[in-house]
Amino acid sequence: MRDESRVPIHSDIDIVHARQKGREFAARIGFSSGELTLIATAISELARNIVEYAQHGEMIFQAIHLAGQEGICITAKDEGPGILDVGQALQDGYSSRRSYGLGLPGTKRIVDEFEIASEVGTGTTIVVRKWKK
């Protein structure tokens, strides 16, 4: 199995594409079907944020191993406008677009580890990890 897969994100079609690629990738790692649905949902939200707020970016899927555990690392990266107040963006219901504001906090609930680095004018990189149960 290749340890990494990349999907460029430029339009709404790429969101579907990233979801499918990510699901296949996670299936090869051996995640259960319930976990695959959660992973695909998280990918969808992260990819959608790229399309909505940054227009262009990339999703990267990696197989990870630690102390006998196996998992997936998902990176969503863009060089868009960045997020001024990351704490606020992570709150349930906060949206700068009058949307649901659940993409980031919801993704955080779905995964085991969630890291976000964002700088206004430079871009946003979100790295999440989910371990097999």
Binding site: S33, G34, T37, L38, T41, E45, D92, Y100, L102, P105, G106, T107, R109, I110
Partner: peptide
């Protein structure tokens, strides 16, 4: 499974 993911997300 989709319903479960929606609940987790808060939808």
């Amino acid at each position: 499974e989709v319903a479960f993911a929606m609940v987790q997300l808060g939808l």
